[in-house]
Design a protein around this nucleic acid. Structure first.
Length: 641
RNA sequence: GGACCCGUGGUGUAGCGGCCCAACAUGCCAGCCUGUCACGCUGGAGAUCGCCGGUUCGAAUCCGGUCGGGUCCGCCA
């Protein structure tokens, strides 16, 4: 049936246009989104779900729906008494098959809201393929709110609804575009196993007990990190994979226990080469997927880690609006650098080497005491000791509890430094650099959201690089890799990979290693971290040095990373790559704030699947086979530790 | 591990000590209707208010616990 070939319509994907196998079958000649005025006069057969039924007695209208669209079917008792009889039995979500004539609609009865609205199918035959219980929520109303639990329990009905269909098709189109760009650029798609070895780094592993080797476990991969590096050593040059990853940590709106990464790795590249490819790929995928969404800046802006923290208080800044952090330190000291604002909190913070910074909330000078209290509470919960503010009222008056401590010159200088206008609210935090950045960075995002400063249509991609190699773990009293234990170091910082004591097993927070910067780059989009990557260390000696700083003994690292370390002795090319969170990326492109909305079958915050009722108690005997025994609840009341 | 919000016919909400064996919308069922497209009209059925316990003469309503969902902190890149 040639008629079914070619361009589909409705909310279907353009990628289907070159389909090889026709959708036409004994059940249908067209999809429900396909027929147009030009088809008038021909006969057609459609199958789909009954979206809505409008029963006028001798005349019944059915809106027939599939994922391609909706077509109106008319059943006239005078023309087709048998079909009419069937149609009066039909209810929403019945699956029916209708044959008839494609008729142009009467002039005043066209429906401009439907792509198929110029025609209707005049039924001659109607067959009920499947009847349906009344669904637990509205399939035919895309806006109807439904309890999250009910949606997940009946996910197959939720996915039948238009918004989920749209998002899953968007995701499909995006993944297709990703593959096309990579294949066009010489990447080889290689699958890696999901039963691998547990690595005690990073997140908690999901583990799978081995039956053949009782007492041992596989781990599900947190990412294919080591395997893709081994593929580079294997000579696979440019590798990519749409990889499922698993992390047994607590869930969030942007975190599920299993999720999908675009994982890629390239050999004989430097940082600029990886970033250039990823950026070009990202732009191409964005334009193929959501051509209507403007990209804020091309080429993407590149910030150093230090700079984004200084200016935005975040390592994943939302660049769709300004409201940057302003350093007030220099206007609060005398010419010789002595803190002299008159406000003791500022002065003592500066004297102790801390920072005093501000953000300007435009037009918020008139906030109520209650709102200020809420902001202050929010700041405290984020770790600040308090939140100072100056409200620039219309007419030039400066209000706020700290105003009386500051002399007029100081206040003027602060306002000038902030470039604040009348009607603005200046929010100030005085603390260590890290706390100031974190608190103001989060308040910036929250206020930007509340004030509607971010254009929801804009895609603001941004690179962040030059991360510190290591962060001090105060609890374990050792350094750990900021991102990835294999990340390389800037060549000029290589000499810093040492401890002050000179002994790798005696680290301290003041070690030179704390100043070493990694060949690490993150890609952020609209305030979300899309992903990160690095140029890896490919020389075994340097890798050992770096791992030792992270508290691994030579024996220990051989135990944990032996395969990679050994492989490095057989000729490892310089290499690097990146991993991007597909779920987060689609969610952002679909303007969703929760990745559940772009996953077909996600889990709840407690990690359960209400539809399949997973996880579940194993069958009798399954533990035995594995040599396991369940010894108690997840909260043992033992007093060990 | 912790904080906060939510749980009332199928769905979404209202009610927040007696006026409630619970209201509204929609859905569902039945009847009527030849041009609707969220069709319309008439009538009807449907919830002991997540669960357990307590306070009270009296609890959907107050208190404690618990289960489930959500948001966030810790955790996680």
């Amino acid at each position: 049936m040639a008629a079914a070939r070619g361009r589909l319509s409705g909310y279907d994907t353009p990628a289907m246009t070159d389909q090889v196998v026709s959708l036409a079958t004994p059940y249908r000649t067209h999809t429900c989104g396909q027929l147009r005025a030009s088809d008038a006069g021909s006969t057609a057969k459609l199958s789909g779900w009954v979206h809505r039924r409008r029963d006028h007695g001798p005349l019944i209208f059915l809106d027939l729906r599939d994922r391609h669209g909706i077509t109106q079917v008319v059943i006239d008792k005078a023309d087709a008494p048998v079909a009419h009889d069937q149609a009066s039995r039909v209810r929403p979500e019945f699956v029916v098959s209708v044959s008839g004539t494609v008729s142009p609609r009467l002039p005043a009865t066209e429906n401009t809201k439907l792509p198929t609205g110029a025609i209707e199918l005049q039924a001659t035959d109607l067959e009920i393929l499947s009847d349906a219980k009344t669904p637990p929520f509205y399939i035919n109303d895309p806006d109807a709110p439904v309890d999250e639990l009910v949606r997940l329990k009946y996910r197959y009905l939720d996915i039948r609804r238009e918004p989920m269909q749209r998002r899953l098709m968007l995701r499909s189109r995006m993944v297709q575009a990703i593959r096309e760009v990579h294949h066009a650029n010489g990447f080889v798609e290689i699958e890696t196993p999901t039963l691998i070895k547990s690595t005690p780094e990073g997140a908690r592993d999901f583990i799978v007990p081995s039956r053949l080797q009782p007492g041992t476990v596989y781990a599900l991969p947190q990412s294919p990190q080591q395997l893709k590096q081994l593929l580079m050593i294997a000579g696979m040059d440019r590798y990519m994979q749409i990889a499922r990853c698993y992390r047994d940590e607590d869930l969030r709106g942007d975190r599920q226990p299993e999720f999908t990464q675009l994982d890629l790795e390239m050999s004989f590249v430097d940082e600029a080469a990886v970033m250039a490819f990823v950026e070009a790929m990202t732009i191409e995928v964005s334009k193929a997927t959501v051509p209507e969404r403007p990209i804020l800046q091309e080429p993407f802006p590149i910030f150093t880690y230090d700079e984004v923290l200084e200016r935005f208080g975040s390592d994943k800044p939302d660049l769709r609006f300004g409201m940057e952090l302003v350093d007030l330190g220099s206007v609060l000291v005398t010419s010789d650098g002595t803190p002299a604002s008159g406000f003791a909190v500022f002065d003592s913070t500066l004297a102790a080497g801390g920072r005093v910074k501000a953000i300007v909330a435009p037009g918020m000078a008139g906030v109520t005491r209650r709102e200020i209290d809420e902001l202050t509470e929010r700041a405290r919960r984020l770790g600040a000791k308090g939140l100072a503010y100056l409200a620039l009222e219309q007419g030039g008056e400066i209000k706020g509890p700290i105003a009386k401590f500051l002399d007029d010159d100081t206040k003027r200088a602060m306002i000038e430094r902030c470039a604040a206008d009348e009607g603005d609210l200046i929010l100030i935090v005085a603390d260590t650099a890290a706390v100031v950045a974190d608190v103001l960075g989060r308040l910036r995002v929250e206020l930007g959201d509340r004030l509607g400063l971010a254009d929801p249509e804009v895609l603001a991609y941004v690179w962040i690089h030059r991360f510190p190699m290591y962060q001090w773990d105060a609890e374990l009293e050792r350094w750990h890799a900021t991102h990835n234990p294999f990340s390389g170091v800037l060549p000029e910082d290589e000499a810093l990979l040492v401890t002050a004591s000179g002994e790798a097993d005696r680290p301290s927070p003041d070690d030179p290693a704390g100043r070493a910067r990694a060949l690490q780059y993150d890609l952020a989009l609209n305030g979300w971290e899309l992903g990160g990557g690095s140029i890896r260390i490919h020389r075994r000696a340097l890798l050992e040095q770096s791992l030792q700083l992270q508290g691994h003994s030579l024996d220990g690292m051989q135990e944990k990373f032996g395969a990679v370390l050994d492989a490095f002795e057989y000729g490892a090319p310089p290499h690097g790559g990146i991993a991007l969170g597909i779920d987060r990326w689609v969610a952002l492109l679909a303007q969703q704030t929760n990745i559940r909305e772009v996953m077909a079958f996600p889990k709840t915050q407690s990690g359960s699947d209400p539809m399949l009722e997973a996880p579940s108690v194993p069958e009798p005997g399954q533990y035995d086979e594995l040599g396991l025994r369940f010894v108690g609840s997840s909260k043992p009341e033992t007093d060990k530790d």
